[in-house]
Computed example of a mutant assay.
Amino acid sequence: MRLQVLGTAAGGGVPQWNCACPGCSGARAHPARVRRHASLAVRLASGCYVVNATPDITDQIESCPWLRPGPGPRESPLRGVILTDAELDHTIGLLRLREADTLEIHATPAVRQALRPFADILAPYVQLAWHDADALPISDKRPRYATEPGPSGWVSALRITDGDSTLIYAPAMGAWPDTEALEQADCVIVDGTFWDDEEPRRTGISSRTATEMGHLPIEATMERLSRLDTRCLYTHLNNTNPLVDPAAEQHKVLAELGVEVAADGMVIDL
């Protein structure tokens, strides 16, 4: 299994178009700090997939050499998309893939139900083939646009297996996944949206804490990750997270624990 990190930012990206916080201003002044929406390219024996379809998806595909089309004029190696949830920043890119002839979408029943309007819009353009994702439920927080309660399984930690290699990917994490599943994985990439629980309220972006917004903060998970005998990385960083600044002291804290911060463009072979 080969992975390429296509993006590592939470909703809005870094910088966010309407935000002048230190994280966004820093990214505008230093382009190396720019982060696209959190996503992965995954190359398996069965084909190539993108995990989550973000607003940046076409640029993200171009950034990954083994996702680019060819040799035929309309021949793409991309077989489909695997979804962790139904949030807009993880699904709106599906509409950008309308030029495909067929597209596999792997998702939980709850996510599929929420995306029925997307499926209706895409029906005249592309044939969608729906499949159940191998998912560990970690939150029942549904997106604001989803008015119907639906079944459980709104937010998942994906378990992607290829031969003897297993990846756990959970860019949004309202509860700690099954520890045994994490211990058995060769690589774990999880929610690093906020550094601490009070960050959203302290920075003025929300009246809720990180956990109330459906994200376990890094301070609540970093010690647990450090005890896993596998490679662990954080992704889905909000623009308020101090980790968007490469000079932030928090990087040293994670380094001492042996936990990494994923970077856009990073390639991981499992």
Results as ranks from 00 to 15, higher is better:
85 D>F: 05
87 E>Q: 15
62 E>K: 15
83 L>C: 03
55 P>A: 09
87 E>V: 06
75 E>C: 13
74 R>V: 01
52 N>Y: 14
51 V>L: 06
65 P>H: 09
51 V>N: 08
73 P>M: 04
65 P>N: 03
85 D>R: 13
53 A>D: 13
72 G>N: 04
65 P>G: 00
63 S>R: 10
87 E>T: 12
82 I>Y: 03
80 G>H: 08
89 D>S: 09
59 D>C: 06
66 W>A: 01
87 E>L: 12
69 P>D: 10
76 S>P: 00
67 L>H: 06
66 W>C: 03
85 D>I: 05
67 L>V: 02
67 L>K: 09
60 Q>M: 08
68 R>V: 03
63 S>V: 00
71 P>L: 04
79 R>H: 11
66 W>H: 04
54 T>V: 07
53 A>W: 13
80 G>D: 07
70 G>H: 07
75 E>G: 07
61 I>T: 01
83 L>M: 07
64 C>M: 06
76 S>V: 00
78 L>G: 01
81 V>W: 04
76 S>I: 00
84 T>Q: 14
85 D>W: 06
66 W>I: 01
62 E>P: 02
59 D>T: 11
78 L>C: 02
61 I>C: 00
75 E>K: 12
71 P>M: 04
75 E>Y: 03
60 Q>H: 09
73 P>L: 08
86 A>R: 10
85 D>L: 07
61 I>Y: 02
53 A>M: 12
89 D>T: 06
78 L>Q: 06
82 I>E: 05
69 P>L: 02
89 D>A: 04
60 Q>G: 06
70 G>V: 07
78 L>F: 03
55 P>C: 10
81 V>S: 01
75 E>W: 08
77 P>G: 03
87 E>C: 08
66 W>S: 01
60 Q>D: 10
70 G>K: 10
69 P>M: 04
65 P>I: 00
76 S>W: 14
73 P>Q: 08
60 Q>N: 10
55 P>S: 11
71 P>I: 01
54 T>E: 14
55 P>N: 13
